[in-house]
C-alpha cells in the first residue's frame, strides 16, 4: 500500500543516497562527540573529587591546629578543665564548666522557645494560611534569617533586656520563685541580661531556620496522603499530628538539629546579652557565659600563653559538643530508619 503511493516512492528514491552519506559523516561526528564527552566527564569527576578531598583536608587541618593550640591547657589542667568552674586569669586557673553549662542552658532554652513557635509557623504556612498571606509570611521568615547576628545582639541589649528587667523578670521572681522544685530557676535579682535573655534572643534567631526546614518537609507530604486523612473525617489538627508529622519526622529532626547546632555556636548576639560572668547559677535570670561568648569576649585580653590555650581548648569543647549533637541526630535517624525497615 505504501509503495503504491507515488509520493512515497519519490521520497524514498531521492532521499536514500544522500541519506547514507549523511549517516556516515554523522557517525564520525557522533564518535568525536562521545570522545569529547568522555573527557569532559573525566575532568568533571576529577574536579568534584578534588573539592571533596580539599574539604577533608581543611577539616583535618582545623582539628589538628585546634588540638595543637589547646594542648598546653589540656595537659596542664587535664580533666579539671571540664569539671571545675574556676576561670581566673589573675591566678592563671582555667576551668570550662561554667561556659559549658551556659552553652547548654541557653541552647536548651532556645529550643524550648523556638520549637513550638517554629512548628506553628510551619503548620500555618503549609496547611492553614490563605494563599495571599503565604508569601509575605514566608518572605518575612527568610528576612529574619538574613538579619546579621550583631543586630540581634544590639536589639537584645538595648530593647529586650530592659523590657525583661522591668516587667517579666520581677514578675517571675515574685510569682514563680516560690514554686517547689522549679522555683530556683526563676528566683533572683532581675539583671536583664543573663541565660533567659540569651535563650530568647537565640530562639528568635533559630526560629527562621527550623520553621523553614519544617515547612519544606511538610510540603513534601503528598496531597493524597493528607486527603486520605481528611477523607476519613480527620480535622486539620488530626491530619497534621497523625499524618504530616509522622511522615516528615526525619526531616523535622534534621531541622531541629540544624537549629540546635546554630544555637550552640552562636557568638555575637549571645556575647551582648549573656553578661559574660563565669559562674554557674540555678537561676535563669542570672548572668553567665557560653563557650563562644567567652572566646569572643576574652581573646584580645588573653595575655598569658596558658590563657590563650585555654580559650582554644574551649573551642575544642564546642567542637566536640556540636559534633556530638550531630552524631546523636544521625544515630536517631538511623534508628528510625532501621525500625521502619524492620517492620516492613
Amino acid at each position: 500500500m505504501a509503495v503504491a503511493d507515488p509520493r512515497l516512492l519519490r521520497w524514498s528514491e531521492t532521499s536514500e543516497p544522500s541519506n547514507r552519506a549523511e549517516a556516515m559523516s554523522s557517525a564520525e561526528a557522533f564518535a568525536r562527540h562521545l570522545a569529547g564527552q568522555r573527557l569532559r566527564e573525566r575532568i568533571f569527576r576529577g574536579s568534584t573529587l578534588a573539592a571533596a578531598i580539599l574539604l577533608l583536608l581543611l577539616l583535618g587541618g582545623v582539628v589538628v591546629s585546634l588540638l595543637h593550640g589547646a594542648w598546653p591547657a589540656f595537659s596542664r589542667f587535664r580533666l579539671a578543665f571540664i569539671t571545675k568552674d574556676v576561670w581566673n586569669p589573675v591566678t592563671d586557673q582555667y576551668g570550662a564548666l561554667s561556659a559549658i553549662y551556659g552553652t547548654l542552658v541557653t541552647s536548651a532554652l532556645a529550643m524550648i522557645f523556638a520549637l513550638p513557635v517554629s512548628f506553628g509557623i510551619a503548620v500555618f504556612l503549609t496547611e492553614l494560611a490563605p494563599p495571599w498571606l503565604k508569601r509575605p509570611v514566608g518572605v518575612a521568615i527568610e528576612l529574619l534569617a538574613a538579619i546579621p547576628s550583631i543586630i540581634f545582639g544590639i536589639w537584645g541589649l538595648f530593647v529586650l533586656a530592659p523590657a525583661l528587667q522591668n516587667s517579666v523578670e520581677p514578675w517571675m521572681d515574685g510569682h514563680l520563685g516560690e514554686l517547689p522544685l522549679v522555683g530556683a530557676l526563676f528566683r533572683g535579682a532581675p539583671y536583664g541580661i543573663g541565660f533567659l535573655t540569651a535563650g530568647i534572643v537565640l530562639a528568635i534567631m533559630i526560629v527562621p531556620f527550623i520553621s523553614a526546614v519544617m515547612r519544606d518537609v511538610f510540603e513534601t507530604v503528598p496531597d493524597v496522603l493528607k486527603e486520605s486523612g481528611y477523607g476519613l473525617g480527620a480535622t486539620t489538627w488530626e491530619v497534621i499530628w497523625r499524618v504530616v508529622v509522622p511522615y516528615s519526622r526525619t526531616g523535622m529532626i534534621g531541622g531541629i538539629m540544624l537549629g540546635l547546632g546554630r544555637a550552640l555556636g552562636e557568638t555575637m548576639a549571645v556575647t551582648f546579652v549573656i553578661g559574660n560572668a563565669h559562674q554557674i547559677s540555678a537561676s535563669l535570670l542570672s548572668p553567665g557565659t557560653t563557650i563562644s561568648a567567652a572566646i569572643a569576649n576574652e581573646f584580645t585580653e588573653a595575655t598569658t600563653p596558658l590563657y590563650t590555650s585555654s580559650l582554644i581548648a574551649l573551642g575544642v569543647l564546642l567542637f566536640v559538643i556540636t559534633f556530638a549533637v550531630i552524631a546523636a541526630a544521625r544515630l536517631m535517624l538511623l534508628r528510625l530508619g532501621r525500625r521502619a525497615l524492620a517492620s516492613a
Binding site: L225, Y230, L232, G233, V243
Partner: peptide, 27 residues
C-alpha cells in the same frame, strides 16, 4: 470532618499511611 466520616473515599493511587497495616485501618 463529621461529613467526611460518613463518606468513604478511595483514591486513584493506593495511598496507605506510612504506618502498619493495623494502624492504617485503625486510623
Amino acid at each position: 470532618a463529621q461529613l467526611r466520616a460518613r463518606i468513604g473515599m478511595v483514591f486513584q493511587k493506593p495511598n496507605p499511611f506510612p504506618k502498619s497495616i493495623y494502624d492504617n485501618v485503625a486510623y
